[in-house]
Simulated scan of single mutants.
Amino acid sequence: MSVLTTAARGFDPLGIGRRSLATQSVLLVFGTAVLALASQVSVPMVPVPITLQTLALTMIGVLYGWRLGVLTVLAWLGEAMMGLPVLANGGGGLTPFVGPTAGYLVSFPIIAALAGLLAEKGWTGERVVLSFSAHLLSNLLCLAIGGAWLAYLLGVEKGLALGVVPFILGAVIKSALAAALLMALGRRTGKPLDL
């Protein structure tokens, strides 16, 4: 067992807990590529676009476990800081980390960790309502942190109107999609469905 996984993971459809450190390193690189691709699926909005980032982030937290999930997100953010075009709309460099999207970027490793920790406690694929709740809580935490930063930059009313309210429906839809995908994975691993 690698130091990147927890001692006992109840939901481990990818077998991350049994993988070598070298394999987990490859998965980390693969995860950064998934995050970069999810970032490019974008609906332009001002000042923050709608992307599939949070869906990918919470899924990586659940599937990789919180430790490897957080390391994967930090590696992806590091790629962005180095100027690689891995953020929404091909963004990269230091500017996104001080502009309107900074609060969301700061929240990303936190929400991957939250989704992963909740999954390790049983809030996962075969427990559909808890799985949905874990993803929704993670998404709402992202909106709270990102919205707080926007409120600091633009004022509370504008921060909520531009950085929180337009994203709530998307958070619900992405959480439902994540729960459905993880339910399907739970069924493929032969575990009974538990609502």
Results as ranks from 00 to 15, higher is better:
137 L>C: 15
42 S>D: 06
29 V>W: 04
80 A>S: 12
81 M>I: 15
5 T>S: 15
111 I>D: 00
48 V>A: 02
142 C>A: 15
44 P>E: 08
27 L>M: 15
93 G>T: 03
160 L>S: 05
171 A>V: 12
38 A>H: 10
2 S>H: 03
60 I>V: 14
81 M>Y: 02
153 L>M: 15
142 C>E: 03
44 P>H: 08
134 A>H: 11
7 A>R: 15
104 Y>H: 02
157 E>F: 06
84 L>V: 12
191 K>Y: 05
73 V>E: 04
173 I>T: 13
14 L>D: 10
99 G>V: 11
86 V>Y: 14
166 P>Q: 12
70 V>K: 01
194 D>F: 03
35 L>R: 01
100 P>M: 08
72 T>F: 09
171 A>L: 06
125 G>D: 02
152 Y>Q: 14
37 L>N: 00
36 A>C: 06
189 T>Y: 03
176 A>P: 07
156 V>M: 08
133 S>C: 11
53 Q>C: 07
123 W>L: 00
11 F>T: 04
67 R>G: 13
83 G>L: 15
63 L>D: 01
5 T>M: 07
192 P>F: 10
43 V>S: 05
37 L>R: 00
42 S>T: 14
164 V>G: 04
169 L>R: 05
129 V>L: 15
4 L>G: 05
170 G>M: 10
53 Q>R: 03
61 G>M: 07
17 G>E: 11
56 A>Y: 04
158 K>P: 05
76 W>L: 04
52 L>Y: 10
39 S>E: 13
21 L>R: 09
123 W>Q: 01
17 G>V: 07
59 M>T: 07
120 E>H: 01
117 L>H: 04
28 L>N: 08
124 T>M: 00
45 M>F: 12
148 A>K: 00
30 F>E: 05
18 R>D: 12
151 A>N: 10
132 F>W: 11
111 I>G: 01
164 V>I: 15
149 W>A: 06
103 G>V: 02
141 L>T: 14
62 V>H: 00
131 S>C: 15
12 D>F: 06
107 S>E: 08
85 P>K: 09
26 V>F: 14
26 V>H: 03
175 S>Y: 11
128 V>M: 08
104 Y>S: 02
